[in-house]
Design a protein around this nucleic acid. Sequence first.
DNA 1: GCCAACGTTGGC
DNA 2: GCCAACGTTGGC
Length: 150
Amino acid sequence: MNYWLMKSEPDVFSIDDLKKKKKSGWDGVRNYQARNYMRDEMKIGDVVLFYHSSCEIPGIAGLAKVSKTSHPDPSQFDPKSEYYDEKATKDNPRWFMVEVEFVEKFENVVTLAMLKAHKGLEGMPVVQKGSRLSINPVTANEFKIIIGMK
DNA sequence: GCCAACGTTGGC
DNA sequence: GCCAACGTTGGC
């Protein structure tokens, strides 16, 4: 079982949205490295730190878990979608997504400022300047530390 | 295959 | 709104 951090802009899709929907396909990822993590490495039961980015208080807002392994992201085939990719075909999809299931909303967001200030989390891409990758692996130790901070 | 130009991310 | 950092595109 592995741990992950997945970023989402709460204005677009927040932990509350996931709570309401219970489960959701993680669509719209258009970065190859993030895609590869979803396609090749994320397994059912893996635990996800749900990170709110580009918002007033960036940080980890709650937990989710992988409920379905990767399958083609349908938005790539939809010309009306902002995630449409004209080079993707159903025979040869370019973008994959996993499905995640709501687990928990933290009472308080574990903020980026807290993550930056906490010993042991220096290696997390999210605390480093200029890190834009929206899906990152998290070590068991980092996960334990963060759970202790909520 | 190089690399400049461009677009996007995301914290502040 | 600014801007640094980064990924992608496309000309050559």
